[in-house]
Nucleic acid binder design. Structure first.
Length: 307
DNA sequence: AACCAGGACTCTG
DNA sequence: CAGAGTCCTGGT
């Protein structure tokens, strides 16, 4: 199956969006297992040009309608988002315009499983991309369901219930536990993950969030231990597709300060409201584009405090 | 080998 | 309320 849409799979995968760890690259195909109506489907995506995606997939015993597979891929890569219209919007702002050339065909990388994006985003806080990626794969392979496909073994992301019952530490009451969250390299986030899993296993259904208004969803999330403003916005943007979110961390702060505030030191929270008010429904995409533009253009290294 | 980066929490003023 | 210290670990 071929999907005719403008998208840069590589760029989108490696752009550090915290919905999920990057997919495994097997024989140059981005490979990941997703469940469609509980049926495991292994997706293998590749492309020769940025105008289309070549889709291969593997099934175990049950069949899935190809249209359903198409729809899920379109959702994950936000393929219905109108990039050209967005580029017109970027062109209208001299500060944003240069980002188009650096980020062409970059799209959102959305989670199929919102709970996965919640845990992934919590785990990304104060962390490096390498360590975060390893941790996320370890969590899946430790507690997820195992599926053996011809192309390899894949794991689902564990459910809230499963994660709420795992051990946080290696040792509990003088008992050694090999399978524990800290062994996944999560450090002190292990406790946040366990607590959040408990909440999403009982009080809040992850799918409740998507029916809320942005503000209510944001307020709901930041009440949870380990979820601050940045992580909440990542969850809302990458996990639920709230495109009005403007995840603001130190880097976005430096970039916005440089571009719009004459390098003046502004608070991260101000950056967030500035981005949301100025970019509206494009806030999320603008954040994504600004971040990668800064990274690739050399602006980022220029903005490092030392230099 | 000591030290720093990266968000969120917690404690202090 | 703002500011400082702490958490974990891969990278220098």
């Amino acid at each position: 199956m071929k999907i005719m849409r403008k998208v840069d799979l590589h760029l989108t995968q490696e752009s550090g969006q915290t919905s999920q760890a990057p997919w495994r690259l097997i024989n140059n195909k981005y490979s990941n297992m997703i469940l469609i109506d509980e049926i495991p489907v292994l997706l293998k995506l590749s492309q020769n040009s940025l105008d289309s995606i070549d889709v291969e997939y593997e099934l175990l015993d049950e069949n899935v309608n190809e249209k359903r597979i198409y729809d899920e891929i379109a959702k994950i890569y936000d393929l219905d988002f109108n990039l050209n219209k967005f580029y017109k919007f970027l062109s209208n702002d001299e500060k944003l315009k240069p980002s188009i050339d650096f980020c062409s065909s970059l799209r959102l990388f959305l989670a199929k499983d919102p709970f996965q994006s919640i845990i992934s985003s919590i785990s990304s806080a104060n962390n490096s991309i390498i360590r975060w990626t390893k941790s996320m794969h370890k969590v899946s392979s430790t507690w997820g369901k195992k599926y053996e496909f011809p192309s390899g073994t894949f794991y689902s992301f564990p459910s809230p219930k499963t994660l709420s019952n795992v051990y946080e530490d290696e040792e509990v009451n003088n008992h050694k536990y090999v399978n524990n969250l800290k062994a996944c390299g999560l450090g002190y986030r292990a406790n946040y993950i366990k607590k959040a899993s408990k909440i999403f296993a009982s009080e809040i259904n992850p799918s409740d969030i998507k029916d809320m208004k942005y503000d209510e969803a944001f307020e709901t999330l930041i009440k949870i231990n380990g979820i601050g403003p940045k992580v909440a916005d990542c969850i809302l943007l990458y996990g639920y597709g709230f495109t009005e979110a403007f995840p603001s961390d130190v880097w976005i702060k430096r970039i916005i300060s440089y571009l719009y505030f004459d390098r003046k030191d502004i608070k991260v929270d101000k950056v967030r409201t500035f981005g949301m008010e100025r970019f509206k429904d494009y806030a999320g995409y603008t954040q994504l584009y600004l971040f990668h533009y800064a990274r690739k253009s050399g602006l980022m290294s220029k903005l490092k405090p030392k230099n």
